[in-house]
Write a protein that binds this DNA or RNA. Structure first.
Lengths: 145, 145
DNA sequence: GATGAAACCTAACCTTT
DNA sequence: AAAGGTTAGGTTTCATC
């Protein structure tokens, strides 16, 4: 993890489709060297994935909920991650302190979409029950990066 | 904007580097047809950009909490917005159904930073109390949040 | 939806430190 | 060894039909 890696990450944050050659000509490496570093960053889980930013209003994905996940016994974070990463409606999730085991932020097209996503989340192992708080008015949204 | 577009968006959300041919074989279109649709979605600003999800521990803002906000009496969403917009650590917030008035997602550099942000939220006149769930393991973070 | 040229990705091999 | 460069081949993209 050096300044070259950070430069590559910055460029990919701005455009995840940039070619290796284009990235290399900016950070000062050959295309191959950039590819090797990107592959390593993905293997090391520094880059968790490649995704798109979608306009929520145009897409109609405006129904949101914060869902507390209560599990039986111990929960392996890796197992939760495996299940949740397969649900595209899950925008954000983490295991937390307090009585709930995890909190999951879901965004769906409408209430039926929310319910369907919730069903998929409940497939996670050892889930006892969930408690949802549906978002009425979205107040703040600051982009993560 | 039809179900084909939505299917393409879902696939790109999971892997923005998926090839047009791969996407087409899933949604039932040729590679060319998929490219035309993706190009249109980008031109129409439905897709705002292609980006990567980076391990938050890299950028040094890795301490997070979900905070339930309980206010005295009835509080208008505008009032809550006024309170929360003065706290830059607030990444995401909305009024919700349930006993809490709002849920606030805070991201800070460390625990003292988190506490300082919470203090700023609590100083607001109508805030009665807060209940925080500190994030232990970040499972999902899609930057399209 | 299909076609063909151009661009790109990828892996193997070579050079340098 | 470790990290970057070069080259060749296969695949994908992209414009055109």
């Amino acid at each position: 993890m050096d300044n070259l890696d950070r430069g590559i990450l910055d460029l990919l944050r701005q455009n995840a489709r940039a070619g290796y050659g284009d990235i290399g000509s900016i950070v000062g490496l050959s295309a191959s060297a950039v590819k090797r570093r990107v592959d390593r960053l993905v293997a090391d889980k520094v880059i968790r994935g490649f995704t798109i930013q979608v306009d929520p209003s145009i897409d109609g994905m405006s129904t949101e909920a914060y869902v507390e996940l209560f599990c039986r016994g111990t929960v392996a974070p890796d197992e939760l991650l495996r299940i949740l990463s397969g649900v595209p409606e899950v925008v954000d999730a983490g295991t937390v302190t307090g009585s709930a085991d995890a909190i999951v932020h879901i965004r769906a097209r409408d209430i039926p979409g929310l319910e369907a996503a919730l069903e998929k989340v409940r497939l996670a192992p050892n889930v006892d029950h969930t408690r949802s708080a549906i978002v009425l008015t979205r107040l703040i949204h600051r982009s993560a990066e």
